[in-house]
Design a binder for these strands. Sequence first.
DNA 1: AGCACGCCGACT
DNA 2: GTCGGCGTGCTC
Length: 738
Amino acid sequence: MARILRVALPVPLYTCYDYLPPPGPAPAGAGRGCRVRVPFGRGRRVGVVVGTGDHTGVPRHKLRRAQAWLDPAPLLDEPLLSLLEWAAGYYHHPLGEVLDAALPTLLRQGEPAEWRAREHWFITAQGRETDPSELKRAVRQAQLLARLQAAGERGLDAAELAEIPGQARRAARALADRGLAVSEQRANPELLEGEGCEPRPEPLPEQQAVLDRLQAAGDGFQPILLEGVTGSGKTEVYLRATEQALAAGRQVLLLVPEIGLTPQLLHRFRRRLAVPMAVFHSGLNDRERLDAWLAAREGRARVVIGTRSAVFAPLPEPGLILVDEEHDTSFKQQDGFRYSARDLAVMRARRLGVPVLLGTATPSLESLQNALSGRYAHLHLRHRAGGAAMPSFRVLDVRGRPLREGLSPALQEAMATHLAADGQVLLFLNRRGFAPTLLCHECGWVAECRRCDARYTWHRRAGRLRCHHCGDERPVPRACPDCGSVDLRAVGQGTERVERALAELYPQVPVLRIDRDSTRRRGALDALLAEAGRPGPRILLGTQMLAKGHHFPDVTLVGVLDADHGLYGADFRALERMAQLLIQVAGRAGRAERPGEVLIQTHHPEHPLLHTLLGQGYDAFARAHLEERRAAGLPPFAAMALLRAEAVQAGQARGFLQAAAERARALTGSEAGGVMVLGPVPAPMERRAGRYRAQLLLQAGRRAALHRLLERWVPGLSELPAARQARWSLDVDPQDMF
DNA sequence: AGCACGCCGACT
DNA sequence: GTCGGCGTGCTC
């Protein structure tokens, strides 16, 4: 064994630390990629060995000995570890924290990277004979007994037990005491096993073209932007491509945005593919997450599906990476290690020499530009399966119109027509709560968050004022705190308010509100979606949640209540986001026999890009918008990095950024020309959660120039005296300017 | 990030 | 006279 170990530790420091190897003989596979437990300061940490050697610049007396090897062989294989090192460099983030983001919690805590036997519960013969109602007062036990009876021979594993509300394990032990249930330890938790029972439709020519392209790539890197409208069969391409890779003995990684929102996609993979799969989603507990990670690492899971962080899933036999809805902003981590899972997926594919397929109906301008410039292959699915027509768009000019709780007469008329014809209506309003503002009609006071530069949203049903930015909450005042008037009024519309209005306007039509408030309870979203899927007239009203993943075949009319917000947003990406949202929302509607209609309410009906989008489609819009970005020198024609800072006092954040800016300007002058240092400026919402925020933007025409500067600049920032009073973070390729 | 060390105000 | 405020420096 080498005499010195270089260890990355989970601390926000840009240096690795050198240690002597642990006492005793090293395991045969010990070395780079293994975890070690080391003394650090006066505590102990779990670190990852990133290098070994015989020399160190650390003076002898400082060098300490690692305590123990935690892995007999590398936990992270070379391709994955070097990807993480690359990512740490690209995002200018400490390697130890990058590794931390990539590893399941239990592994970070030093848990062995092994399956652990888990409890599995079964019904006994006596339990089978017992009527649950006999356990009168023990309701939980009675419920569990019924579940165990239903589960039969299969029984319930620890994970299933954990999903039952209440203290199910306690109830299980109580049943065991009565002789109604038994448990046994199972060494190998079962993996999710696909059923492979769904028929495999013959690929259409456009779909076949994608598959041919992937086949031709063989063992090589091949990025493909797959642009296909909703219903054009992207999922079928994913499935076929996955089958091809599986047949070649390879694993497939599928990244999806917020998995809870795409059960339909998951369901299809499960039905179609008869292989073990590992699914990473937010509902997993630490042990389940580790199990999924190990299943991927051991190659037992042939398909790995997950959200953002699944891009770091270990894959010993990678063959294909798929990114669904590649434009989705949830692929970008918004705090700490701010990586883009989509971009890392492409880099990982490139380093592994495997194809990567980015699918979407509305490509991000970044990916589109990569396709147009020839860096990515650009393939289309232009036809909706079964020949369904795309919905027709109509802009509703609401200027000067009498709006009833945000609904124009024209929209109400259209709704009446569609509902009378047995169609469903989907209304989109990206604002939950009853009203975004509570105003005193007497003196003009508005309810403002005490910790943010924002207004409280009035949640009428809950009887609370809530700040959507910091989560602060308080009761609704009965009278104005300034003048004592009781004439407090709601200004503006949220989903709760529109829901009320709809109940009055269409008393005979059920209204389903789908937003974060109405789906907070476990299973509530599934229940609402099931309800929405039933035939018959119905109004679906919701926020962003409605725009993603789900398809509502009986919806024939989509109404976008307020498109104005996106048209003149502060962020240069607002328009791109708006266009993607409009197309995605529109894609929720209609099927073969009943093409949908989309109505968009706006005060800016003349907006040129709205015209292009609705008249000529997303592609035309995107190309026109790309030209604007090019002319303005904005991404994807420029590289950006945003240094954010926040502090208790307004001047502290700014002071730090000012010092940082001076350093950056000194560096751009000499070594790293071509980088603009813009700011510091206050953040768009300067005060948030009681802290003042400011930011400094770095922009360069060439990515390489930006990175040359960042390399010299970032590691020294924490040494600036002003850095003490501010909390700061760097965001490379920021998606939001907030 | 933690966590020590280290010098100046209100308290058993 | 002490307990404790958070400024500053370090962690192999």
